[in-house]
Amino acid sequence: MPELLRAEALTTDLGRRAGFLRPAVSLRAVDGVTLSIAEGEAFGVVGESGCGKTTLARTLLGLQREAAGEITLAGRRVSGLAPAEARRLRADIQYVHQDPGAALDPWWRVGATLDEGLRIHGVGDAAERAARIAEMLAAVGLDADFGQRYPHELSGGQQRRIGLARILLLRPKLVILDEPTAGLDLSVQASVLRLLAELRARFGLTYLFISHDLTVVRRVCDRVAVMYLGQVVEEGPAEALFARPAHPYTRALLAAAPHLDGRAAGPSLPGEPPSLRRIPAGCRFHPRCTRASALCAAQTPPTEAAGPAHHVACHHWREAA
């Protein structure tokens, strides 16, 4: 598969500029992330809250300006640009909001919200807009009369469908799904996941799937990157990564996820989720890692190959297996 999106050593700083009697505050939320997403792939990004998943997505979208690094979209360099220009060149990347209810205007009928996106993107003909909306509502499994409803009249699952329809109307190539199943009931989650698979096949979409729900990621994604404090600590084919996790953090995450069989989970992960304000020296995970050595506290681990297309950044990954 040809590469659709590539990020090379991507770094994003969040913060504010210095003001009167106010020092500049800067947090490096994404720090040197390199990833490559192939066309048609579902690429998962997992990690605890605050690990930089959403900031990474915003940077790829162009909503957040990268401090360093390069982004290539379909072979074309789209980084290092002013925000408006960056967003224009990245129109092929669209984002589905984590809380689709909050992303819909409560005073607007859903149809008007859908129509607005098309108008902004220059689809001038009202008849064509209406036709495309009707077609897209059908594609996400809703009747055409849903266009007449207000957001509060929709269930959580229906709101997600509208959120998807709104994005897909713009005919993106890459869709960033931010926690697409958070807060959904099991049966609704199943139908949303099924819809995502259908839409991916039908429109030839590529997904960047951000989630903290590992059982869902395992189910949906072809490849997975695990983030910790702004860095990718492990990346590989979903199957290999879930079957043979190489990084101790990945292992801890997998062990923590509750399973139906109630199987006795592995050792738990001590300590609080880390803060970007206090990034540990050396390997960022070492204060919580059971395998940490003096080396881990002193040196940043290099990224090594742990298998075909499987990379891990840990000094001790070989011993851990």
Partner: peptide, 26 residues
């Protein structure tokens, strides 16, 4: 969980990503 008996429980558990052969929903 091992032997759900009511049709609803059975269908609901078959939606769980851990268990589902094919995600169908209800």
């Amino acid at each position: 969980l091992d032997t759900p008996t009511h049709p609803y429980t059975r269908m609901l558990l078959s939606c769980h990503p851990d268990r589902a052969v094919e995600l169908l929903g209800i």
